[in-house]
Amino acid sequence: MEIQPSSILQSLLLVPLTLLPIMNPLGTAPIVLDAARGKDHVLKRLSRQVAINCWFLIVGSMLIGTYVLDLFGISLPIVRVGGGLLVASSAWRLLQGHDSDEVTDAVAEASSPDLSETEIARRSFFPLTFPLTTGPGSIAAAIALGAQLPRTPLLYVTGAGIAALGAALTAAVVYLVYRNGGRLMMRLGEVGTLVMMRMMAFVLLCIGIQIMWTGWAELNHLNP
């Protein structure tokens, strides 16, 4: 069966267009900047490592996520409901202006001046990659994307390769946003940054509710 270039492009863009609004790297950029303590070379290393970690998490979720769910007997609609609930609750905390929780405390600890830059880079997975950048909501969405891959061997390999390229494109956007986030925050100023984060939190809340609604509709369809 011949694969059309338009369908390849559509599949390639589907991954970043689906995941980036949920991952919301623009809203997380100030936290990454704070973890780097304002040092440009540390920010560059952190941005690169977080992007690499995100690629592995996204690809792993797409390729093996559905098999893990089958192993534990968890349906994809349940994952959507749970992931959407977590995304919505995180967005609600951001809207309420809670400046201190377990994640931000972990960032503060990782960015302590007593820690070396090597130690800061080593801690880039938690919490900067998970759960701040690639959290439960984006993982659930990645699993849903992986469930749409064709099951015939040749088409599966092709689809998996395209999905991996889409994940690489997503990780590249994350890197660029985090790497240049400091400049953007300085241009926006403190008030502009606060307004932007509240707006992104509201968008994230809507995305979380949409994910939950999709999962709930699928559950009702399966159990009329």
Rank of each mutant, 00 (worst) to 15 (best):
M212D: 07
V195S: 12
V173G: 09
P153V: 06
N220P: 00
T152F: 11
C54V: 15
T18V: 12
E119Y: 01
Q96T: 06
I209V: 14
A29E: 02
G84S: 04
H221E: 00
E119G: 00
L145Y: 01
D34R: 08
E119N: 04
I139G: 07
S90V: 03
R37A: 11
E218L: 13
A106R: 10
L184F: 08
Q10K: 04
W55F: 09
A106K: 11
W92E: 02
G137P: 09
M23Y: 03
L176P: 01
S89C: 00
I120N: 10
R93Q: 03
R123T: 09
V203D: 00
D105S: 12
V174R: 04
L17S: 13
A121C: 07
K44G: 12
R187W: 06
P16I: 07
S7V: 11
M62A: 11
H98I: 05
T66V: 06
M196I: 10
Q96M: 10
Y175L: 05
G65W: 09
M185F: 02
S7L: 12
S7N: 09
G27S: 10
E190C: 02
L188N: 10
D70C: 01
A108H: 10
L13C: 06
F72C: 01
V195F: 09
P5N: 08
W213Y: 14
I78C: 04
M186F: 03
E119T: 13
M23D: 03
L13K: 02
V32I: 14
S112T: 06
A35D: 06
L76Y: 07
I78V: 11
L46E: 07
P136I: 04
L57D: 02
Q49L: 15
L43W: 00
G84R: 05
L9R: 05
I139Q: 10
S90D: 04
D40M: 12
A147M: 00
V79E: 06
Q4W: 06
A171M: 02
M199P: 03
I209N: 05
G208M: 03
G60A: 08
L19Q: 06
P30V: 15
S89P: 01
G137E: 08
H41E: 07
M186K: 13
L43P: 01
G166F: 09
D114A: 15
F130C: 14
P150A: 11
S116G: 14
V81D: 06
S6W: 07
I31D: 12
A201Y: 01
L128E: 11
L176H: 01
W216R: 03
I143D: 01
L184W: 11
L63D: 04
A106Q: 10
M200K: 08
S6T: 12
L154H: 14
S61I: 01
R151L: 13
L115I: 10
L169C: 13
T104D: 03
L19S: 07
P113Q: 05
Q49N: 15
I3T: 15
T193I: 09
V79F: 03
T133C: 12
A167F: 05
S6H: 08
P153M: 07
I78L: 04
I207R: 03
L17P: 03
L33A: 14
